[in-house]
Amino acid sequence: MITARYWREMPQRYRYEAGKCVKCGYVAFPPRLICPVCKAREFQTVTLANTGKIETFTVIRVAPSDFEDEVPYAMAVIKLDDGVQVTAQVVDVDLDELKIGDRVRIEFRRISQDGEAGVIFYGYKFVPA
């Protein structure tokens, strides 16, 4: 992955920064330049809620190249307590016990590595709350 491409997303991946529309309150994650709800263009930087629940999930058993060593791993769409939905891995959990509605908490973790000796990418994963 191009280093600059990774670097640009760091505020979201490291500090969970989102943009809150000052007019209607819509929370955009990642930040946007125009609000998809009310078309306002002014946002205030806020931090994502750090807990939420699993809306749906899967266990990946056939992975993309960078994740082939990780299988099987759980991926979920998580609805955070501020209403924002994100896609992320759920870790430190028994894959057979996972279910919709489970409460989870955000944690900063290693995500993948760029090739065998490349940059290590970090970001958020979720663990049982």
Partner: peptide, 14 residues
């Protein structure tokens, strides 16, 4: 989505 390791079968599975 992709950054976190999701695949197309994974998205449709969800």
């Amino acid at each position: 989505e992709g950054f976190h390791g999701v695949t197309f079968p994974g998205l449709y599975a969800m």
